[in-house]
Amino acid sequence: MAWYAAVMLLTARQLRVRAGERVLLDGVDLTLGAEECAVVVGRNGAGKTTLLRALLGLVPAEGEVALGSIPRGSLGPRERAAAVGWLPQSLNLAEPVRAVELVAAGRFRFGEGRRARHEAAVRSMAEVGVEGFAERLVHTLSGGERQRVALSALVAQEAGLWLLDEPASHLDPGVQERVYRFLVDQWRGGRGLLLVTHDPDLMLRVVSREEAAKVRVLGLSEGRLALEARLSDEDLPEKLGELLDVRMCWAELGERRALAVLGAR
């Protein structure tokens, strides 16, 4: 294993983010063990995206973030990129670019020549199943193809822990499931996941019962951690429903049970 295996544990203490008068994140304590998988849920504006950005140091935040036992701030940018990778909600490109070049940018932290970088980029694309788009311009791809190209850049970065911000929103149901299956395979392979989603049932669809008992559910409400549960908890629908302000229940769907939304409260 690479050196970052030792620092994959992510801890945040009293993480607080302000935007003028508003408090976006209000003292969040969070520990994510190595090789853990956690989904972050909450209503719009609850602070999910801000939490990821604060953990990455992309917004000014009070409190401490540590990777392993090392404070985030005392690691260099490349070391941080070795420990934690990020998939933002959307991909905004400043200008047209070929998919392989975008994926190769994920290799920034490695000191390697262009040929090696491109080969690694194409390998990463093959892992996600999009190597056929290597020479295509990213903005000409469909939403699902584009998201999987963005995911390839994350693969290319080879970070120990992935922070993913709604990785499957705006995608059709089949692609959503493919993306989640890929992510869970990565988790099974030893990668840590912290995944923001509005649809925890998607995760339930692609994991076994035993795995569901390991998946943590973290609920954010008004910038605070308001729920800590497991994806297999019997009372998860009630708790989640309270957090999201909807009525929820377990629904038996043949071979599996699903988290179902009955309607607004």
């Binding site: 950005r53 990455l56 140091g57 992309l58 940018p77 490349r78 941080r80 990129a81 070795a82 934690v84 990778g85 990020w86 933002p88 991909l91 905004n92 490109l93 400043a94 200008e95 670019v97 070049e101 975008l102 190769a104 940018a105 994920g106 920034f108 932290r109 850049a153 970065q157």
Partner: peptide
């Protein structure tokens, strides 16, 4: 290479180690 990584925005480039 850092300028290349900026094509998808500063935040993403920063998360990639720039």
């Amino acid at each position: 290479r850092g300028l290349q990584a900026l094509v998808a925005g500063e935040a993403r480039a920063a998360s990639q180690g720039v």
